[in-house]
Design a protein around this nucleic acid. Structure first.
Lengths: 230, 230
DNA sequence: CGCTTTGATATTATCGACAAGACGGCAGAG
DNA sequence: CTCTGCCGTCTTGTCGATAATATCAAAGCG
């Protein structure tokens, strides 16, 4: 599977492109939760044949970003509060461990990567206030993910990073579905600052605490908003 | 209205069968680590076409049981000590959490499932002494897996169970590659007994400790034997 | 004598078409 | 009027063939 961190240069494979596009459309909510994924529609949407499409859907199914029903095709998974809380709990466990190990083991290059990623995220955060608030900027999503990836990048466990990436995709689908809560946003941005501080200070325990609180706050906000929507 | 869930024991899907067969052959070592997986060979081996084969390989690639190289097909992943230790460490973390939660939350049905799974494993363990020692009985592998799955089944976290299953597959590939160590086997069987005892006694901490030691002992044994083989 | 190039071979990735199975409407019986 | 069984239509799952790409070996050039 291609983690969000790895970057494939360009013309590599149709099926890999389809995989990324489909994943992005599912995580972003462009493809509604619970909706069927008909082959003819997807083939027209992405301009590909059946084989690479099936391949992409199979890979997504392994990561639980689509569900396959026997002889009844694929669907984007329905949302469920229990599922989301399970994802959040496990993500806290794994990503907390990862950031602690990363903070302890990270070298200068890791530290610089964290600083750079945070700067890019923060700069966009300021500009973001200006345009219409409705559209969640895709660029912010990418930089936010890049920052969180940078924090745990030096943990030394490829499998932890892989599972964190899978869980982050799942988590973001719910978060983006719920929409943003302006009141929580300031605290979340402060926590980003604190994560940066803790990383630079090599305070692994503090980094773990803040990250756990960061994810938990996001989870609670999302749960609150989702309850209101349903 | 009819029992749609219980039907279709055989006619599921060619691609799902291929997925299971390929996974079994990779975990068991029938397909050697690092070897290329040529389409013509696999199509002949499993008697299927290209589409379901690609679908199965894609799903396996998401679980890291095969690796895909761009425009160069699929391979069974090479073995690496660092990879195995990463898998083992993460498996200890997740499966320990899972058995602790399961022991605390499990109901009577869970308890009975554990007892039954252990009985089936133990009964086979006795008979197993008789036939030739060389062939690792596939039935033992299945019952061993079933026992470990039963222990964590009530943990309440589907995602934890999913990741544990993925890691267990990865772990077993190395374990079966290394072969059995007769000297460790008695301790490992004793630990199975202890796990059963702790589960029945609802001693979550002890269950977690024993399971961690169980996996760690297996890991150390495998590492020792692999070093000798390489 | 070694390195690069170039052509032939082999393998993969993709496409379009066929067959098997599910879904939904309609008619007939109770 | 309602329920049940059946048939047409649609969707999926699979196959074989085609186009694109990598691999390998030998020959030409530096």
């Amino acid at each position: 599977m291609t983690d969000a961190a790895t970057t494939t240069p360009s013309e590599e494979a149709v099926s890999a492109d389809a995989f990324r596009l489909l994943r992005a459309d599912i995580v972003s909510g462009a493809l509604q939760a619970g909706s069927r994924l008909r082959f003819v529609e997807l083939q027209a949407r992405y301009g590909i044949g059946t084989s690479p499409l099936r391949e992409a859907l199979s890979r997504l199914a392994a990561d639980r970003l689509v569900v396959q029903e026997v002889n009844r095709g694929f669907r984007v998974p329905p949302i469920s509060m229990a599922d989301f809380e399970d994802i959040a709990t496990l993500r806290i466990t794994l990503e907390r461990q990862a950031i602690e190990a990363s903070t302890r083991a990270g070298d200068e290059a890791w530290e610089e990567g964290v600083v750079l990623a945070h700067h890019r995220l923060r700069r966009l955060g300021r500009q973001e206030q200006a345009p219409e608030e409705d559209a969640v900027p895709e660029e912010w999503e990418m930089r936010h993910r890049a920052f969180h990836n940078a924090l745990i990048a030096a943990c030394g466990s490829p499998w932890t990073l892989h599972f964190c990436a899978v869980l982050h995709d799942q988590f973001d689908r719910y978060r983006r579905l719920a929409g943003r809560d302006p009141s929580a946003q300031v605290t979340l941005s402060q926590q980003h600052e604190e994560l940066l501080d803790a990383a630079i200070a090599r305070d692994a325990d503090r980094a773990g605490r803040v990250l756990a609180a960061h994810i938990a706050l996001t989870r609670d906000t999302v749960v609150e908003r989702l309850k209101r929507l349903m």
